[in-house]
């Protein structure tokens, strides 16, 4: 914890970065809701790294921030429809198995890699313009006030997850069990995909790709109790994002993006190894 506080303080004092621990807290809360609201269902996997949504939303955010705005709400609103579409495609049409999702995710990552390299070569990412940076750092870093609605949204998600816990658990057991609650499986599945897209869009729009990719830390603790999972995830996310912010001062934004992507790949590989029984 001392390391995190030290890094955060150094970042804040030396480079005038916005208070990243708060940013991480908001993002972590939001991701925590996301993981509680769409839990452990192999057909509706919360592991976005596996299906490459992180890369896909990065492309969307980058395109939007370059052409439209760096306003978090606008980015969220505009990125939501394509995100919902790809989620529906992955979970209802194509991605029936984790292996397929992984292949689609890999394609997304390669695409992102090519785009980042191209933009870097063209000096678009190297420049210190605020707009393209939004896709990497998120719009939350440009305004601390955005933390308040994000916090409220996360709290609402937490309450919802708490209250609907039995129904969500029943949903996870599968379509044979879900009618016990007197609800239809398919519409609820669709609602969960929408909720999942909303939260995914939310934390990527506000936290950016660097903050977003840090969320894989949750999966290291996915079988522990929720409080420990939340605190451990938060701690590792803070270290991760502070280190990336610190590195960014000495290296280039493009390289930091590549590092984040590489870590995303490695975490993906690690998670698949750990869950090899589920993936095959």
């Amino acid at each position: 914890m001392a390391a995190v506080i030290g890094l955060a303080a150094a970042n804040y004092m030396l480079f005038d970065y916005h208070p990243a621990p708060l940013l991480c807290l908001a993002g972590t809360l939001s991701y925590f809701c996301f993981s509680l609201l769409t839990p452990r269902d192999p057909d509706l996997n919360v592991d976005y790294h596996q299906s490459g949504e992180s890369s896909l939303i990065f492309i969307i955010l980058l395109a939007l921030s370059l052409t439209v705005s760096n306003n978090g709400y606008l980015l969220l609103a505009l990125s939501l429809p394509p995100l919902v579409l790809i989620e529906m495609y992955l979970h209802l049409i194509a991605g029936r198995s984790c292996r397929e999702q992984h292949l689609i995710g890999l394609t997304h990552h390669i695409l992102v890699l090519m785009i980042v390299l191209y933009l870097w070569q063209q000096d678009i990412i190297k420049s210190d313009q605020l707009k393209p940076l939004t896709a990497g750092y998120g719009s939350i870093s440009s305004s601390v006030y955005l933390l308040i609605p994000l916090g409220l949204f996360a709290t609402a998600g937490l309450l919802l997850a708490k209250v609907l816990h039995p129904e969500i658990s029943l949903f996870v057991l599968g379509s044979d069990y879900f009618p016990l609650a007197g609800l239809n499986y398919r519409p609820v599945r669709l609602v969960l995909i929408l909720v999942r897209s909303l939260y995914l869009g939310l934390f990527f729009s506000f936290m950016g790709f660097l903050g977003g990719t840090a969320q894989f830390f949750f999966f290291l603790f996915r079988k522990t109790n929720p409080v420990f999972k939340f605190l451990s995830g938060l701690f590792l996310i803070m270290i991760y994002s502070q280190l990336l912010l610190m590195l960014n001062r000495f290296l280039h934004y493009g390289i930091i993006l590549l590092i984040a992507m590489m870590i995303s790949y490695l975490s993906n590989y690690y998670l698949i190894r750990r869950r090899n029984t589920q993936d095959d």
């Binding site: 452990r40 192999p42 057991l173 599968g174 044979d176």
Partner: peptide, 11 residues
């Protein structure tokens, strides 16, 4: 009786 729940459910 319903079929067995998914084997990877963690509840």
């Amino acid at each position: 009786s319903i079929g067995l729940p998914r084997p990877d459910t963690e509840i």
